[in-house]
């Protein structure tokens, strides 16, 4: 555990809670892509199956349980509790174009050809592109609420901090996981355009427009 890893995890946690609270307090999921949230629920489910097979630390177990719980709670709020406010017409990204190639790639390029490891790899690849339906939705409607931009910023910051964590771990522990690193770089790059807009526009104008 180093400072980048910890702040990355906390940034990730902040993003998840910001979104959950935003939907809960406003009683609305307008502007939020339910598809991205389903993808994140799939990401956490397939990645944290090791909760059943190995124990790493209390911190690790607690965070995994919180992430999974919040992901399903978010999906529940969007598709059940506040379904009437869900803007399905604008959430039109074709997720099969992500899930199918990512599934194929995880079977082809993985650390070990075993069910759990393939599912872990699938979750890493899927996470790197899971935000695309949300970004697509924002580009389609041309705007996002300020709180939604805070969510996206924390979510992007998390993977960027993980990149620094991997640099740290490579130098000080000789550790590197090529699959996680390449997917993490892809994931971070997808947020770059958003980061730029967030810093130059998001802080000063609202509602936020692309």
């Amino acid at each position: 555990m180093n400072v980048f890893r910890l702040t990355g995890d906390l940034s990730h946690l902040a993003a998840i809670i910001i979104l959950l609270l935003k939907i809960w307090k406003s009683r609305s999921c307008a502007g939020i892509s339910g598809k991205s949230q389903i993808l994140f629920a799939i990401v956490f489910t397939t990645r944290y199956l090791d909760l059943l097979t190995s124990f790493i630390s209390l911190y690790n177990t607690c965070m995994k349980v919180i992430y999974i719980g919040c992901a399903y709670a978010t999906v529940y709020l969007i598709y059940a509790k506040f379904r009437a406010t869900y803007d399905g017409n604008h959430d039109s990204f074709r997720v099969e174009f992500l899930v199918v190639p990512v599934g194929g790639l995880s079977v082809l390029i993985n650390h070990d050809f075993s069910p759990l490891e393939i599912l872990w790899t699938f979750s890493i690849y899927l996470e790197s592109v899971a935000i695309l339906p949300q970004l697509f939705m924002i580009s389609k409607t041309g705007e996002a609420e300020t709180i939604t931009t805070h969510y996206l910023f924390c979510l992007g910051l998390y993977r960027a901090l993980y990149l620094f964590n991997w640099i740290w771990r490579f130098y000080f522990e000789g550790f590197f996981d090529m699959i996680a690193i390449v997917a993490g770089v892809v994931q971070t790059v997808l947020y770059c355009d958003f980061f730029y807009l967030y810093v130059t526009k998001g802080w000063f104008s609202r509602p936020y427009r692309l």
Partner: peptide
Amino acid sequence: GEVLTQHDEL
């Protein structure tokens, strides 16, 4: 042999 990869990150 079975390779068990442990992933310690979230």
